Simulated scan of single mutants.
Amino acid sequence: MLLHIFAVRHGQTYFNRYNRLQGWSNSPLTEQGLKDAERAGHKLKGVDFQAAYCSDTTRAQVTAERILSMNQASDPKPPLQTAMNFREQFYGYFEGQDMGMTWWAAGAPHGAKTYNDIVDKFGLAATRDFLKDADPFHDAESDQEYWQRVEEGFALIAGNTDLHDGGKVLLVWHGNSLLSLMHRFAGSAYDLSERPANGSVTSFDFDTQAAFAQAITLTSYNQ
């Protein structure tokens, strides 16, 4: 069964505005964030969704509810299903801290001073593993822990008996999660130097019967 996923990054929050890490912590949408959600709603108002998912964070739920309220093609509109599996990665001790200072703390012991520097020298997986090492409590998710949780989330979608081949699914997700998906499945086909914008849409096909490592085919990014 092949599903068409429309993944939206939630609207801008105050932590986004203040350049602070926001994984499992949560801050409200700004006025701009509500406009981001409306912009995504306009883009997707003509898509006939058979299912809708988001993380169980308020910022994702508010964005998803705004998108569904504007949708004109789904009849009936699917109920919004929330799951912690679709949360952003957990930053542990560094939740809510300044992003620049955090990535310096994670990368400096390895000769990398920024997030992009870590990615360029060691790959995106290292950003999670280095941060877990730098966390004095080691609560931040490792790359393996993160992907295990996310894969369980996609298993929830695959197990939805209301979905059929060719079905369209709304997924309101998070910036680093979308960027991680792109790095894992898109290769060099897209310019990943720019993070997905708040309210942007990334589309991909999800083969529910394939092993997860081969299940995702990207069709657009950061639209």
Rank of each mutant, 00 (worst) to 15 (best):
Y53H: 01
G107I: 01
G123S: 07
Q89Y: 09
N71C: 03
T63M: 02
F86V: 12
D75R: 14
Y93A: 07
D133S: 12
A112K: 01
R128E: 14
F130S: 05
N116A: 13
R87H: 04
E65R: 15
Q72D: 12
Y91P: 00
S55N: 01
N85S: 13
T102L: 02
F94Q: 02
T63S: 03
R66I: 15
L80G: 07
E38M: 14
D117W: 08
Q61K: 15
A106C: 07
G41T: 03
A126V: 07
K45H: 05
K45T: 04
D129V: 04
W103M: 04
M84D: 11
H42D: 13
D98P: 06
F122C: 11
T58M: 06
R87I: 00
A105R: 15
K45Q: 15
R87Q: 03
A52G: 02
M70L: 15
Y91S: 01
F86P: 00
D133V: 08
Q97N: 06
A60P: 00
G111I: 01
K77M: 07
Q61I: 11
K113S: 14
T58C: 10
G96D: 05
F90R: 00
L124R: 13
A40V: 01
W103S: 01
A126Y: 08
P79G: 15
W104S: 10
V62I: 13
Q61N: 08
K121S: 09
Q50V: 09
F86L: 10
A105P: 14
G123F: 08
G92K: 03
D56I: 01
K77D: 00
A73C: 11
G107E: 06
I118E: 12
G92E: 02
A60H: 00
Q97P: 07
A134V: 04
G107L: 01
D129G: 05
A125N: 12
Q50K: 13
K113A: 13
M99E: 05
E65V: 09
T102D: 03
D120R: 15
Q72R: 13
Q97E: 06
Q72S: 11
A134K: 02
A126C: 09
E88K: 03
G46C: 04
F137M: 09
R128C: 12
D117T: 02
H42V: 03
F137H: 10
R66P: 02
E88W: 08
Q97H: 11
A83C: 13
K132I: 03
R59Q: 15
G46W: 05
A134R: 07
K121D: 08
E88L: 05
W103R: 05
V47T: 11
W103Q: 02
A60M: 05
Q97A: 04
K121W: 07
N85E: 14
S74L: 06
T58R: 14
Y115W: 12
I67L: 09
P109V: 14
H110S: 11
